[in-house]
């Protein structure tokens, strides 16, 4: 049993998949747009964790470079997501996800 508790690549994968599932549940369950954006950040961070774990255990710098790019894109996505959410809040004075249906063409 103590052999299985010695931390290896799989332990990081388990934690990353759990974190990813929490992110998915957050997106499905919550109404507030900003909490949905946060859950998306959680999902992206779960991917970052597994990238870093693979890069560490396979001695491959490519994994860490991918984490770098995911961070850049996730930050840009959060910035734009919030800009849209603020624009919707100023127009419809509420931040629920159902208000976004009014953006239909």
């Amino acid at each position: 049993m103590s052999n299985a508790l010695h931390v290896g690549l799989n332990h990081y994968l388990v934690v990353s998949s759990l974190l990813f599932m929490i992110g998915v549940a957050g997106v499905l369950v919550r109404k507030n747009v900003i909490v949905i954006l946060m859950s998306i950040e959680l999902m992206l961070n779960a991917v970052n964790l597994s990238f870093a774990a693979f890069s560490h255990f396979n001695q491959e710098p490519g994994g860490q470079v991918m984490v770098f790019f995911v961070m850049a894109i996730a930050a840009a996505e959060a910035a734009i997501g919030l800009a849209i959410a603020v624009a919707v809040y100023r127009k419809f004075n509420g931040i629920e996800i159902k208000l976004f249906e009014n953006l239909k063409g």
């Binding site: 770098f68 850049a72 930050a75 840009a76 959060a78 910035a79 800009a83």
Partner: peptide, 11 residues
């Protein structure tokens, strides 16, 4: 927002 974008440049 502009801080985040230029922070990524610094990174």
């Amino acid at each position: 927002i502009s801080f985040i974008l230029f922070d990524i440049e610094v990174i």
